[in-house]
Amino acid sequence: MTLKQAGIILATAVLLASFFWLGTNVKDQKIVIPCKPKQPEHKPTITEEETTVIVNGVGLFDNTSNGEIVHIIITSKRGEGRVFADFSTGAYVGTDLQESILLARLVASEYTGELAFDKDYFVTFDSEATEVSGSSGTAGIAAGFVALAEGKRVKQNVAVSGFVYENQTIGEVERIGDKTRVAEKAGMTSMIIPAVQCNKTMMENFTIEVICAHDLSDVIDNLLE
């Protein structure tokens, strides 16, 4: 028997019992129901508590300098410390990106002390592409995990592209110039890139603020509120 069925049966039984009791004892007397002070409305929680952050990654379409902001949506809810990838969006998730998610979780776990093992994490890539792949989202995903663990918000006018190693340093990614241009066209005000790829050209060629990240803490300082 489900909870729903039990609720229906219990409520009906109680009210039918009172109906028969009143029916046999009160007869035609007028029933006066005393007014009770109004209780504050309390709605029961019917969905599990969940928290979501959205990180702006940058993706390039194959063999072009065109691309898009890929919204990386990470949700945590009560669970067992597992990580799930969302395969229902239009974009397939490459195995290298699946590995990046796991690496990001590991790095974020070490950065924060540990990620909660009583929560599951769900990662969705909101993209126009048919496949999202590569490892340049790793730093952003790691920062997203940190934001969830520390209850911080992610700035929505900042994009990030970078790999992150287990020692938390930020590693270079391919075609960072094209990615920065995509972020600029998309209206972002800042773009976080690996410090190893910061050079005069990168710093001067864009109207967007280019932030050079040496390690994960640099990303977090500039991406989280």
Binding site: F84, A85, F87, S88, Y92, T95, I101
Partner: peptide
């Protein structure tokens, strides 16, 4: 309508 796949152990090819 989400299809959520645990990727902790296996990786899933497209």
């Amino acid at each position: 309508g989400k299809i959520l796949v645990n990727i902790d152990n296996p990786l899933f090819i497209t």
